[in-house]
Amino acid sequence: MNELIERISICVERGKVNKTSPYPKDLAGQDGADELTRQALDSNLGPDSILQACNVGMMKIGERFGRNEVFVPELLMAAKAMNAVMAHLKPFFKAGTVKAKGKFLLGTVAGDLHDIGKNLVSMVVEGNGWQVIDLGVDVKPGKFIEKIKENPDCIVGLSALLTTTMASMSKTVKEIKEQFPNIKIIVGGAPLSHKAAEQMGADGYAPDPQGAVEFLNEFIAA
């Protein structure tokens, strides 16, 4: 692997955003994902190979997260570094030179105003190469359905924080599945579990942002 590409991968895994970023301490003062990506593009390294390096970095931090070696803050720093890379790659996505893994339509269900969990999922999923369409909070089923019509190839993510908003989530899943039985839906949030997700007819459950990424990536593999 090209040295620049390898360093980008390490920066993403370690959450090294740019040269001025103080995190992680052992990389202080060194170029980060931002500078290295610019250098890689200036050296005519392909955006595909940069994206691949990022995916390797995100996969490694995800695996460490799964082993409880790192926790959500480290995962979010990695996502931030990944987003620094993506800022450079945006023109290539627009031009169609590189493609997102897919579209992820995300929102907090009707009646629920909590957005921190949903926003963190959005950032990590985007950092993993997906196009995220974030519908915000308190999203009614009709809004999800309208957006699915515009993006029929998307995967839907629903977030809820409280037990009672699970009823709203269940209603949303039901209404989406009635109109779009083949659309895949993943649910997440504090009161949920695999069992609850299954009961409401969702296709998957993610206990954390990394769980959402793993679910989405399985669909690519499939």
Binding site: G15, V72, P73, L76, K80, D115, I116, M123
Partner: peptide
């Protein structure tokens, strides 16, 4: 917390929350 997230600093936003 929301402002930090908007400004692209999710880790600090999460810690504040």
């Amino acid at each position: 917390s929301r402002q930090l997230l908007t400004n692209g600093d999710p880790a600090t936003a999460f810690l504040v929350d």
